[in-house]
């Protein structure tokens, strides 16, 4: 496979000391297998996600993302920016688009950036890692590299909101995107194509501030996976993963359910299907062990 290089905006899930992060570790493994080189944007800052708005208003927020793009344009010249976190991707891409549409805002952002000695050109494409897999590499190629098909695993593909809206993957529908199911299928697993909660919101950051209301939604997301006879849920989004996995005990307590379903990343699926170990795929990072994946990894 031809080597691909991207400018990488890791976001907060990649910071050192986070070696236990199953997203980051499995993305690294996946990128080794797919011959992708990620060049971290030097000294990147947080984009403030979708929650910063309440304290940091429009221009400050746009400027935060503008700084990352400007740093990328200066240090990782001519490389597309790739993010693995849905919120990072959305905030960065949204800022780029907004500053393209609005010239005076663009000028203001550059005025603020000058305080940090930076200048934004704003001509860098901002991609989600899922776009790299689906569009740049393509599922044909992905399928061709599978060493251990994920046979006998039924997977509910949970795309969530922000990987899917408002930008999503070109050519996919917002209400019923198929790429995650197709990816699952090309790895040899069995996709629950009628998983009706695939784009249901989990509450996002409100899972922290409005736990009761959010957990009611998360309950529906998990219940539907069981109804579709899924063995596990797979997602591209770090916050989805956390929200759907960690509150299962709480939800069980609150609603008298007996949930105990693993929630994994697409990058973990690819890592295992490409023959890597459970630890390379960061399966030891699950709160609820993904036994069926572990079994295939150790075969």
């Amino acid at each position: 496979m031809a080597k691909r290089e991207y400018s990488y905006y890791p976001g907060c899930s990649s910071q050192k000391g986070a070696s236990s992060s199953n997203l980051m570790k499995s993305v690294d493994t996946m990128c080794e297998e797919l011959d992708i080189q990620l060049n971290e944007i030097p000294d990147w800052n947080c984009c403030s996600a979708s929650i910063g708005y309440a304290s940091g208003s429009e221009l400050p927020r746009l400027t935060l993302s503008a700084r990352n793009i400007a740093l990328s344009e200066e240090h990782n010249k001519n490389q597309e920016i790739v993010a693995t976190c849905a919120a990072c991707w959305l905030a960065t891409k949204e800022a780029a688009e907004r500053l393209k549409e609005d010239e005076s805002m663009f000028a203001e952002a550059n005025q603020a950036l000058a305080e940090a000695g930076l200048k934004l050109q704003n001509n860098t494409p901002i991609k989600h890692m899922a776009e790299v897999i689906i569009e740049d590499i393509g599922l044909e190629q992905i399928r061709a590299g599978v060493k251990k098909p994920l046979e006998g695993i039924k997977i509910a593909g949970y795309v969530g909101c922000q990987t899917n809206r408002p930008f999503g993957i070109a050519g996919e529908s917002f209400e019923n995107p198929m790429y995650l199911d197709n990816l699952v299928g090309s790895l040899g697993a069995d996709a629950c194509t009628t998983y009706e909660k695939k784009v249901q919101c989990c509450g996002g950051a409100l899972a922290f501030s409005e736990p009761e209301k959010s957990q009611e939604m998360i309950k529906g997301i998990i219940e539907a996976a069981y109804d579709n006879e899924a063995d596990m849920i797979a997602t591209p989004c770090p916050l989805c993963q956390a929200n759907v996995e960690i509150y299962q005990d709480q939800i069980n307590e609150r609603f008298g359910t007996k949930f105990n379903i693993p929630v994994v990343y697409y990058s973990q699926l690819i890592s295992v299907a490409y023959g890597r170990s459970a630890s390379d795929a960061a399966l030891d990072g699950q709160l609820i062990a993904a036994k069926k994946l572990e079994d295939i990894a150790s075969k």
């Binding site: 907060c12 899930s13 910071q15 986070a18 992060s21 403030s48 950051a205 501030s209």
Partner: peptide, 24 residues
């Protein structure tokens, strides 16, 4: 929550979201 998030982010330029809310 948003205020805590923002203020902490502004101190260091990054939020340790791993510890705040992400997976592991």
């Amino acid at each position: 929550f948003a205020e805590i998030f923002w203020n902490n982010m502004m101190k260091k330029g990054r939020v340790n979201e791993l510890k705040l809310g992400l997976s592991l």
